[in-house]
Design a protein around this nucleic acid. Structure first.
Length: 185
DNA sequence: CAGAAGATCTGC
DNA sequence: CAGATCTTCTGC
């Protein structure tokens, strides 16, 4: 699923227009099977939406400062989710630059999970929001989506974890060489 | 109940 | 490289 989302568009409809990112970096989290997942130790007030039905968002506050957004993928009760780590601006770039605060070009608009939510205006208020029909946010494919996927996808270990980073856990997916991916730390 | 660490980013 | 400062977990 994390891999399938690469190259897809993530659309947020605001009162003053749409902002659209093409996803170029994602990470998979596998709930109870995955020590690196927020769902590993079961439901908590913060992560409850991860245990809800698929097709909704799980938004949490990281380090008390940045929001990060996941797409819930597992069936109800199963806390599987995909963290959206970076995207390339496709529409509404100027609005995203304003939310990010005077950023030039596309490179720093959404190249990291905290930057991505700030660019799209996603906060904890959107925790649990549905991506399925009728909402103000959704995922979509377009003519370019397949080209991005066929152009090459790099697979690496996930970023920033103290656990769940064994050599076999290559659950970070990146559009190969894309300039809007998050920078290696 | 206090302290520490965490799926981060920025500015010094 | 330190700081911001919310949520959860651990140890006493």
């Amino acid at each position: 699923m994390a891999r399938d989302l690469l190259g897809c568009l993530f659309v947020v409809a605001h009162a003053d227009g749409r902002t659209v990112l093409r996803l170029v970096e994602t990470e998979a989290y596998r709930g109870a099977l995955d020590p690196g997942s927020h769902g590993y130790r079961g439901p908590r007030p913060r992560n409850l939406s991860m245990f809800g039905p698929p097709g909704r968002l799980y938004v949490y506050l990281s380090y008390g400062v940045h929001f990060c957004v996941n797409v819930v993928c597992g069936q109800e009760g199963v806390s599987e989710a995909v963290l959206l780590r970076a995207g390339e601006p496709v529409a509404g770039v100027e609005a995203m630059r304003v939310r990010r605060g005077v950023v030039e070009g596309n490179r720093l608009v959404a190249s990291g999970p905290g930057r991505l939510t700030q660019a799209l205006g996603i906060t904890r208020e959107h925790d649990g929001a549905s991506l399925l029909r009728g909402g103000s946010m959704w995922c979509a494919r377009d003519e370019a989506t397949e080209r991005f996927q066929e152009g090459g996808i790099s697979q690496t270990k996930r970023i920033g974890l103290a656990v769940g980073r064994g050599d076999e856990l290559t659950w970070r997916f990146v559009v190969a060489g894309h300039p809007c991916a998050s920078r290696a730390r």
